[in-house]
Design a protein around this nucleic acid. Structure first.
Lengths: 230, 230
DNA sequence: TAGCTTAGTGTGACACTGACATTAACTGGC
DNA sequence: GCCAGTTAATGTCAGTGTCACACTAAGCTA
């Protein structure tokens, strides 16, 4: 440690990438290869380069971890974590981003390019390196609130989806059952939330469901509130 | 400029301190004494010290600029601005905070300790140094949305206030007239928003108004939505 | 006491919500 | 082909909140 001021100050981005998969809310986690916390699970992320914009760094890291074009996904800065001793290597100020993805295969999963994998949020909570447990918790709470007020839920879905798919997203992210009839009415009657494609999808059994795509609206007016908001 | 990576990287905090004064929404602005932008208005703020927590730095700067105990006010981190060339002195990543105050006299105003002064938001918009116009805009929009969903409006008021005072806060921050009758009923019927003190305040003319203080609730359920939310 | 001003309550039309019934469309078993 | 099972979508209806407005209450001044 030198006496030079801010000698070890660095800016990092940490990504909370969420999806709904296998009936649970899952987050992208990596296994750390280097010290500190080698071998332990952590959120994907990395240092911001000199002369690199912070959001550009988040998009770049997202691309490196998932192999997907980060620019096409929902990506939102949501908090800064800058407690002086949160990283044993020195002063690291981390800008946290929330990203939402549909349940797509990870192009680079298993390759040497990335060791990122999906894990249920409930399974990793409490086991992450650094202060990443707290970052994850704040991201999940942010996503939950975003579902109330914005059309974010469509970002969890593929390009075409049914009202049932969308309802499942709400139910899994909120951990709360919703009435299918009332939910359907609310979504369809909210201007700009979803647009019918005119096509249908056959389920393994039962009546075919109409397919929709995301509409132009980004905010929901009126909001869709969950019951247990304290 | 050396070749050492991040040689000039620094973390700053910028404060958007809002109050309702003289019938308008006003923000605390300083006049810069040093280059760059000497003589130009800017948001109060400063660099985070080595080993200082970011929020602690925001509280400290708020105390230095207003002479008030920053810890007793509403103070919320709301965004990070880290575009590489936003500050001509080098790479400065700024964490922006929103603070809300009642209309109190600034203890140090006019003294040499501070040159901070209140200015109407509409008057300073477009004239601030750095990227502070954008920071101010985002803060105001944040405050507007916070009024919809939280009890933040009480933070603009003194310890005791009337329903009319509270309504005035909404009207000025939103720039939109509200029906006094319906507003009153909504506020009083929302559990935990306000608590009656049992006392009254005499206006210069007209019927005395009951005084209230802020209640225990922080979120509003149901929210109070403005009409023009896009 | 009349008249002004501001505070607060009452009312009725209307929209939205939540709980639940009913109908629609498809598959597979017999 | 017909019925049972399953899932999707629409309908109903009471309760609640919202909005626009009328009205009453309580102080002041003239």
């Amino acid at each position: 440690m030198t006496t030079r001021e801010h000698a070890h100050l660095r800016i990092a981005v940490d990504l909370v990438v969420l999806t709904v998969r296998e009936g649970t809310l899952q987050a992208l986690v990596i296994t750390r290869g280097n010290e500190p916390f080698a071998g332990q699970p952590a959120l994907p992320g990395g240092f911001v380069r000199t002369d690199e914009d912070i959001t550009d760094a988040a998009v770049r890291e997202l691309g490196e971890e998932t192999g997907l074009d980060g620019g096409s996904l929902f990506l939102e800065q949501f908090a800064v974590f800058g407690e002086p001793h949160r990283d044993p290597r020195g002063r690291v100020v981390s800008v946290a981003y929330l990203a939402i993805m549909p349940d797509l295969p990870l192009p680079t999963a298993g390759s040497d390019a990335s060791n990122a994998a999906w894990s249920p949020v409930d399974a990793v909570r409490g086991s992450l390196a650094f202060d990443h447990d707290r970052i994850l918790d704040e991201a999940v709470e942010r996503a939950r609130r975003r579902l109330e007020l914005t059309t974010l839920a469509t970002r969890f879905c593929a390009a075409e989806f049914t009202i049932g798919d969308l309802r499942t997203v709400y139910e899994i992210v909120w951990g709360e059952a919703l009435d299918p009839r009332n939910f359907s009415r609310k979504v369809v009657n909210t201007e700009g939330f979803v647009e019918p494609t005119g096509t249908k999808r056959m389920p393994p059994t039962g009546r075919p469901a109409a397919l929709y795509r995301a509409g132009a609206a980004t905010t929901l007016n009126p909001p869709i509130m969950r019951t247990g908001t304290p």
